[in-house]
Amino acid sequence: MEFVFFLSAAVKAGTCLLYATLGEIISEKVGHLNLGVEGMMQMGAVIGFIAGFTFGNPLAAVLCAALAGAAGALIYALLTVSFKANQTVTGLTLSIFGVGFAAFFGKTFVGKKVPEAITTFFQPIKLPFLGDIPFIGDIFFNQSVYVYFSYILVIAIYLYLYKTKWGLNTRMIGENPVAADASGIPVDKYKYFNIVLCGALCGLGGAFLSLVYISVYPVNVVSGRGWIAVCLVIFAMWNPGKAMLGAYFFGALDIASFWLQKYNLPVSIYLFTALPYLATVFVLLFTSMRKINNKKEPAWLGKNYFKEDR
């Protein structure tokens, strides 16, 4: 039973990562490495909390969080897509901005509790039928609505990327924007759409932390999870389904130190902290050494596309 508890907690801890990772996947699929994930999550987390605290309405809070993340992404999109600015530098700047933004606007809310109405709304709900499956039901189907929505998103984003014309175009732009442009795909429009959607998802990931995961607003609620999400994209090899598994694995590592202490297990907690990064490096090396092309990063990842260079 304890183990089921642990896994259920791992799913919860991994959900914020899952939102951000799904977002970053669709951004990277269109060729844009956005290192501003941490910043956009921070913006979503703080705006989500402020909106929730002010309006007391869970849906308003979530919507504002998504908009805040999307606004951050829009700055990034404007600079990298329209103004051809360097993606790495712009992304890092966005992270600096988001961290400062959250620290500044969240300052007066530190120590405040999430309103009752929101906590109640996001309480774990046991689903009928699915929730009765032994083990699986307790782990996956006795969770918050926020977690259930992420399940739907995984499927939706998988369908979007691999089963629709838009997804095909998106992937084509990430692999070869020259060819995509030549075949009449509006490259910039696709880029804007994917990048801004990525921002909204990162915002949702951040707000999951500030509205569901914690009960009292801390000084730094995201505290580096955005970077873990960037790792997770590679670890999942740009695949939404694997991102889900990876998110729960990294989520488990996130809470592992607490459980290790609880049971006095003789394992270094530093190993657990470093494991997401070590595992990611391993995946990165493995895929590049074996030249597995369909599991590698999009060919134009990080490079801007300039039409007139064609």
Binding site: I75, L78, L79, S82, F83, K84, A85, N86, V89, T90, T93, L94, I96, F97, V99, G100, F101, A102, A103, F104, K107
Partner: peptide, 21 residues
Amino acid sequence: PGSVAEMVQAIVLFFILGSEF
């Protein structure tokens, strides 16, 4: 708060990155 400076720094950077264009 020092976070203001972080934001100012980032805003300056955004503008410079944009002006490169």
